[in-house]
Design a protein around this nucleic acid. Structure first.
Lengths: 335, 335
DNA sequence: CATCGATTTTGAATCGATTCATAGCAGATT
DNA sequence: AATCTGCTATGAATCGATTCAAAATCGATG
């Protein structure tokens, strides 16, 4: 059933080496021969077997990307950025979701290693760096995405989330708000912890300002709505006058809970800001202020670093790229 | 550098066959030997080379899934459904986006074929069925997702979009609305054409009802907003009293444009219904009525059909599964 | 002690594309 | 005619896990 190079070679009356050359270095083969071989390929319906190819080459032409959550538009945007850059280099990106589950993260990392991918991009869940270290030591380049490698042992692309948290909080404080609530969790996720830390620092600098944490179980719209309900259920006087949500999904949930019954006006009673600036943020009925991260650029850069590591000699020095987040003001924090 | 079964075998003083057996049929190997081999594997940091494995096996343990657009939450939901089902069978799902571009669709299909994937799930863009037919003839099972195979030559999982369109329109007509606008495009996308057709039929059955089409270039929030602007710019008397958007992304865009300046109230002045019932729909500030499709179930079923085809003998009969859509009423069409 | 059956282990052959040292060949040069 | 140059084409060897027929090992039984 399966048609191999050998069959093509026989049909075109050439050797297997020549077929391979037609496939990979057509300029090294006489034009007439190329034509004959291509005709045979067409006629037999030959399709290269990638497994055999990889086996010989040692590495695959794919990059594995393990993201925290495919349903978060921020990550799909990063993935798309990575994909276009990879395509330029003739590579493909394979996506895997850890769904904030350590076990699934491991499964994907192992799978990618068995596939001898060109490299692994990963937004690691927790601090399982030793595992990634081993992966790298065995020869698979690794780039951390959306996480800074503090010990400088890995290449990484990150956005300064502490600065982002500060940016959001300072914006709210600048509006004159003083009772700020941070909605987000769990704090084991580094992004959440950093954004909170940034906000804490900004609030600490303003004497009469306070910061309250409303924890969530994950970073979804549903959890945001639950957190919003908690706030809405309080007497008006005890509500915060500003909410900083750890990401836009949460913020949209909060928004819905607050505005649904008209109890609290956004931004009148409560100013609201999210994080990531996903497409839906601008499209919310009260367009959402947010902290923008250069998602596509992050993806691009991650692939660049990966390729640099893959092509490097032994004395490769990892590189840490940190982007600065940007405040985007919309109606939800107007006035 | 690379550690192979041969190295492990040497370290454990056994043959390569035994190492392979430990990996794949541990019950066939004496317990003491298993332990010795596992110790060697651990010590050397051996990782199976999947390419070699596949080469021998003939097929990979992955399923390729080509979706129209990863940024549409409906498709990521289908993909997740497929993924969980595939995981049960010990398979992995690799995602590729065609982004409504025929060329990219081809690239992914070719890639998956070269990888000898277990099978291909695809929401085909246009009618390039002959190409898929060839793929299937060469031995790769193919299941069409979100598209019905009218000629019954392929297995397929679809939702009756004509029924869905009718459902949406009848709901609006049932509210007493008579001047309905359909927002969506391009009509070359089958889903769009079918939903419109269903709406047309429903409207045709009500004497004084009319249907107007407001075309869009694609199915994004941005395009929805543009369409909404077009409607809002009209004198109030010339606006439709109901809008049916071809999907929820468009609907959310329309919603924002209409409500932004308070010119038109939803559902007071204009009732609005979308399609897909994505998570964001319920979370919109005016919660969006929609036509629900069983996304996860579609993914599950697609994988089931794929496995059935993969395990089948030569005389396999493709199966077409069609789900019925379901109306979900929320505030945007209340009253 | 020989024989038999069951269990465990062996290792050469295999999958298919690629590589590379070698050979073949035509035309140019001496 | 002999030698050299540049271009093409060749095909055995290779990558690493798996398979499977055959061999080895072990107990048990007559």
């Amino acid at each position: 059933m399966a048609v191999s190079v050998r069959d093509v070679a026989a049909a075109a009356s050439v050797s297997v080496g020549t077929v391979s050359n037609v496939l990979n270095r057509p300029d090294k083969v006489a034009p007439a021969t190329v034509e004959r071989v291509l005709a045979a390929i067409e006629e037999l319906g030959f399709v290269r077997n990638d497994a055999a190819r990889q086996l010989r080459a040692g590495r695959s032409r794919s990059i594995g990307f393990v993201v925290l959550d495919v349903r978060n538009p921020f990550f799909t945007e990063v993935a798309r950025g990575a994909e276009t850059r990879a395509a330029d280099a003739g590579l493909t990106v394979l996506l895997g979701t850890s769904d904030e589950d350590i076990e699934r993260e491991r499964v994907y990392v192992d799978l990618f290693e068995e596939q001898r991918v060109h490299g692994v991009l990963i937004s690691p869940l927790a601090d399982d760096l030793p595992r990634l270290q081993r992966l790298r030591d065995r020869g698979t380049p690794v780039v951390l995405v959306d996480r800074q490698a503090h010990d400088r042992s890995f290449s990484s692309v990150a956005v300064d989330d502490i600065a982002g948290g500060r940016l959001a909080a300072e914006h709210l404080l600048g509006l004159g708000r003083r009772r700020i609530a941070f909605v987000g969790g769990p704090e084991s996720i580094r992004q959440v912890a950093d954004r909170l830390e940034g906000a804490r620092r900004a609030v600490a600098e303003v004497p009469d300002a306070s910061l309250e944490v409303v924890p969530t179980e994950n970073l979804t719209v549903l959890q945001g709505r639950a957190a919003g309900e908690v706030l809405r259920a309080r007497p008006a006087a005890e509500r915060p006058d500003a909410v900083f949500a750890a990401n836009d999904l949460l913020a949209m949930g909060v928004l819905q809970a607050l505005v649904m019954r008209g109890d609290a006006k956004v931004p009148g009673d409560i100013a609201l800001i999210g994080y990531d600036d996903i497409d839906f943020a601008a499209a919310a009925v009260v367009p959402l202020s947010s902290i923008r991260q250069p998602a596509a650029l992050i993806g691009h850069t991650a692939v660049d670093l990966l390729l640099r590591e893959a092509d490097a000699d032994d004395d490769f020095t990892p590189e840490q790229v940190v982007f600065q987040p940007e405040l985007v003001v919309r109606a939800s924090t107007a006035g």
